[in-house]
Deep mutational scan, measured.
Amino acid sequence: MTYKAILNGKTLKGETTTEAVDAATAEKVFKQYANDNGVDGEWTYDDATKTFTVTE
C-alpha cells in the first residue's frame, strides 16, 4: 500500500511517499524522515487518503 506524507516544516516543505504494509509502519518511516530533515511538529493522519501531515 502506498502512503503519503505532507511536510509543512519551517525549513522543509514538500511531499514524499512510501510503500508499507500498514499505517503504523509508514508512520515510523515518515517520522524518521522528518527527524532526519529537522522537522518536528504536530502529526495527523487521514485514513481515507492514506496521508500523514506534519506541521511545525
Rank of each mutant, 00 (worst) to 15 (best):
Gly9Gln: 04
Asn35Asp: 11
Thr17Ile: 10
Glu42Ile: 14
Thr55Pro: 01
Gln32Lys: 14
Lys4Thr: 13
Asn35His: 14
Gly14Trp: 15
Asp36Ile: 10
Val39Gly: 03
Phe52Leu: 01
Gly41Asn: 03
Ala34Leu: 07
Ala5Gln: 03
Thr51His: 01
Gly38Met: 07
Thr2His: 08
Asn37Trp: 14
Ile6Phe: 07
Tyr45Ser: 02
Ala34Glu: 00
Glu56Ser: 08
Met1Asp: 13
Thr11Glu: 10
Asn37Leu: 15
Val29Ala: 08
Thr53Phe: 11
Gly14Pro: 03
Thr49Ile: 06
Asp36Lys: 10
Thr11Lys: 11
Gly41Tyr: 05
Leu12Ala: 08
Ala20Lys: 01
Tyr45Gln: 00
Glu27Gln: 12
Tyr45Ile: 01
Phe52Thr: 01
Ala23His: 08
Val54Arg: 01
Thr11Leu: 12
Thr17Glu: 10
Lys4Glu: 04
Ala23Glu: 07
Thr25His: 13
Ala26Met: 00
Leu7Thr: 03
Glu19Trp: 15
Ala5Pro: 04
Thr44Phe: 10
Gly38Asp: 07
Tyr3Pro: 02
Asp36Cys: 08
Asp46Leu: 03
Glu56His: 06
Leu12Ile: 14
Thr44Arg: 07
Asn35Met: 15
Asp46Asn: 10
Asp40His: 14
Lys4Gln: 05
Phe30Ala: 01
Asp47Ala: 13
Lys31Arg: 14
Lys50Arg: 15
Ala20Tyr: 02
Asn37Ala: 12
Lys13Glu: 05
Asp47Thr: 09
Lys13Trp: 11
Ala23Phe: 12
Ile6Met: 05
Glu19Val: 15
Lys13Asp: 04
Gly41Val: 03
Asn8Tyr: 11
Thr11Gln: 11
Asp36Trp: 07
Thr2Ile: 14
Gln32Tyr: 05
Asp47Gly: 07
Glu27Ala: 10
Val21Pro: 15
Gly41Ser: 02
Tyr3Phe: 13
Ala24Lys: 11
Thr16Val: 15
Lys13Asn: 08
Ala5Glu: 04
Asn8Val: 13
Lys4Met: 07
Trp43Glu: 00
Lys10Gly: 07
Asp47Tyr: 08
Lys28Met: 12
Thr55Cys: 08
Thr53Pro: 01
Asn35Ser: 14
Tyr45Cys: 02
Leu7Pro: 00
Lys28Asp: 06
Thr49Leu: 09
Tyr3His: 03
Tyr45Asp: 00
Val21Met: 13
Asp47Phe: 09
Thr49Cys: 05
Asp46Glu: 07
Asp46Ser: 05
Val21His: 13
Thr18Phe: 13
Asn35Ala: 15
Lys10Leu: 15
Lys28Val: 10
Glu19Leu: 14
Ala5Leu: 15
Thr51Ser: 05
Gln32Arg: 10
Glu56Val: 07
Phe52His: 00
Glu42Gly: 05
Asp47Asn: 09
Phe30Pro: 00
Thr51Arg: 02
Val39Asn: 03
Phe30Arg: 00
Ala20Glu: 04
Ala48Ser: 12
Ala24Tyr: 09
Ala48Asp: 12
Phe30Ile: 02
Val39Cys: 05
Val39Pro: 01
Asn35Lys: 15
Thr53Ile: 09
Asp46Met: 04
Ala34Cys: 12
Asp22Phe: 03
Asn37Gly: 05
Ala34His: 02
Glu15Arg: 05
Glu42Phe: 12
Gly9Ser: 09
Trp43Arg: 00
Thr25Asn: 07
Thr18Gln: 05
Gly41Met: 04
Ala23Ile: 09
Lys50Ala: 06
Val29Ile: 15
Thr44Ala: 10
